[in-house]
Write a protein that binds this DNA or RNA. Structure first.
Lengths: 223, 223
DNA sequence: ACGTGTCTGTTGTTTTTACAACAAAATTTT
DNA sequence: AAAATTTTGTTGTAAAAACAACAGACACGT
């Protein structure tokens, strides 16, 4: 636990909270670290979400299985980010599954238990709300971004939009993609083999180059 | 303005706020009503969003134009709902255009001006934050829902998923769709004519029936 | 009621995508 | 290091969607 203290302290969720406050919060919310194996389900669709989760190591896919068995990856949650905050905030049943994409460590806080005891009014609670507010609004904007990605009409346009956005996030035209090919295809809602084909076409045309998960965008894509 | 007072008072944004508080807020935030013609742009991509907006009458499309000129409708904002709250909350530049889908009246509040004057600390401001927090988390969940809609693999599945969700929202298998055909197609990211074709196929097969914008889902769809 | 413009539905053709099957490369296990 | 498993890339074919072009229905203003 102490191993992750600084990481936790510097995360968006606990931004601007003093050491003493933070220690109080971690105790009040019964903070603990839990490890999940790759593929293990953290939150299942239909469940109430009672905990706040923050990724310490590894990463988590937010998924939906369509009625016909096809998997949709709604989003990918990386270290220092939170899982299913919206469902906690809205006191809502989860609409999605959260699944560890590899071996993953999470910080878990018993949000509901603590906030119901102090009738939603203690100062610790209020500080968190402010930060959650910020995070939610940013998540909102990210979801809109993702909608733009998957709304492109062709595989080519989806890839170029996605890759441009990643380059922008990384502030560099060379960057690593966190997804493997199948997961990326499920994220962009396209067929994996068709995606691979289009990727190598883009490479042959000189628009991009890549080795494994390391991608490079050539200038004409970025302009 | 007074004409809309009750509507405003009962909206999510002002939920649980007393009459005296509300009158204070409306004054402090320089509330005013503004009318937009169909097609008029309310917020333009790239602009800072400085106001809170609530739809009083009409409705608003949240749109993106793809680089290649194709229009994407990210979401539709109906009466009593708010526009681009996430961008206000995140103090961010807008990522989208907001466009009146028909003649529309909006309540406009100068959010930035008021909150900067009172250094983000007055009580009126804090009450609003709490409500905005609730609204943002629900919007988040809605966006995830929308991602599920557009992530279906076929036009048929997109339509069935969308229509089932609408039926659920309306708590009835008979309901009106707010979109016209072109807008619905832009919302689901499909070609309008192909969508019309699939709709009439679904009707011939007896899964749905419709006249103009009034739809009915037959029981086998809902099961 | 009439013309004008917009919206909706239909059809045929072209383009794109999904799917299946497999080869090559990389990673993990033994 | 060899074997086994997983991941990635390639190709051909079948299915689906986009596109274009048009006809009919509807809405609006005069």
């Amino acid at each position: 636990m102490d191993k992750y203290y600084n990481q936790v302290k510097n995360s968006s969720l606990f931004y601007g909270i003093s050491d003493e406050e933070l220690r109080g919060i971690l105790e009040c919310f019964r903070a603990r670290v839990r490890t999940y194996d790759s593929g293990e389900v953290i939150i299942r669709r239909g469940e109430r979400v009672l905990n706040l989760y923050m990724v310490l190591e590894g990463c988590v896919n937010i998924e939906k299985d369509s009625f016909w068995g096809r998997r949709i990856i709604v989003s990918r949650v990386n270290p220092n980010e939170n899982i299913a905050l919206a469902f906690v905030a809205a006191k809502n049943v989860s609409n999605v599954d959260a699944v560890a994409a590899k071996k993953t460590k999470l910080l878990v806080l018993s949000y509901e238990k603590c906030t119901s005891m102090c009738q939603n009014a203690c100062t610790r609670h209020r500080v968190l709300i402010n930060n959650m507010f910020e995070i939610l609004s940013k998540e909102n904007i990210e979801l809109i971004q993702k909608i733009e990605n998957v709304s492109q009409k062709s595989i080519r346009d989806k890839l170029l939009t996605y890759l441009s956005n990643e380059a922008q996030k990384n502030k560099s035209n060379v960057f690593e993609v966190g997804f493997n090919r199948q997961d990326l295809a499920d994220y962009l809602n396209i067929d994996r083999s068709a995606m691979c084909f289009e990727l190598s076409k883009l490479q042959k045309e000189g628009l991009i180059s890549y080795q494994k998960n390391k991608f490079m965008l050539n200038s004409r894509v970025i302009d």
